[in-house]
């Protein structure tokens, strides 16, 4: 007698934080102006989503915990060998390559958030005097340029790091989508449906 137990790979918290980060990144890239108040808020929202996901990595469900997908280059190489040989191993969490991608994305996001907060400071207060277009595209903090030289140097460094990390993030996202597309072609559409609402 075989009892078929469908393993649900991603829990709602993983899904919501995943799509939350994706939505913030896309909306920010397409609509929100660089250095606007909305941009700063987007950064803090990302910080919250990332922090929650990391907390979940310690106390979450089995497949969401870091201990289920430890970063391991040797296992990643083994996984590549599996792909070459056409072997299909079942992974209850991320596959070893996917795990590396997840850590890379999180590290990249952390650098972006940290450098962004380094530049912008606390989330600016929003009151009725700020119009919607100003909120979304107006440059925040342009007026306060009379700061000391040291601070502006630090800010330049943050800006540099921020830009490099953001470009790296876009590269990683492209690789992530390519990886998912490849895995879907290789192992079936469950790779994608596992991350969709209601999917298993």
């Amino acid at each position: 007698m075989t009892v078929h137990t469908p393993t649900r790979r991603w829990d709602p918290l993983v899904k919501i934080t995943h799509w939350g980060v994706a939505a913030v990144v896309v909306v920010n890239a397409l609509i929100v102006g660089e250095g606007s108040i909305a941009h700063i808020y987007a950064g803090y929202t990302l910080a919250a989503l990332l922090a929650l996901r990391i907390l979940w990595g310690f106390i979450g469900t089995y497949s969401a915990r870091f201990s289920s997908f430890k970063p391991s280059p040797s296992r990643a190489l083994g996984h590549i060998a599996d792909i070459r040989a056409g072997r299909h191993e079942v992974h209850k969490s991320h596959n070893p390559l996917g795990a590396l991608m997840a850590y890379a994305l999180w590290a990249c996001l952390a650098v972006i958030i940290a450098s962004g907060i380094g530049m912008a400071g606390a989330p600016p207060a929003v009151d009725a005097s700020i119009s919607a277009s100003e909120f979304i595209s107006g440059e925040y903090g342009e007026g306060s340029e009379g700061s000391e030289r040291e601070e502006s140097q630090a800010e330049e460094l943050f800006e540099e790091v921020h830009e490099i990390a953001v470009n790296l993030l876009y590269v990683l996202i492209a690789l992530h989508i390519a990886g998912v597309a490849f895995e879907t072609a290789r192992s079936g559409k469950r790779t994608i449906t596992a991350m969709l609402p209601g999917g298993k």
């Binding site: 803090y44 929202t45 910080a47 919250a48």
Partner: peptide, 10 residues
């Protein structure tokens, strides 16, 4: 929980 987390960060 997600909304609470965002509020907490702010």
């Amino acid at each position: 929980v997600v909304v609470q987390a965002i509020a907490a960060v702010f």
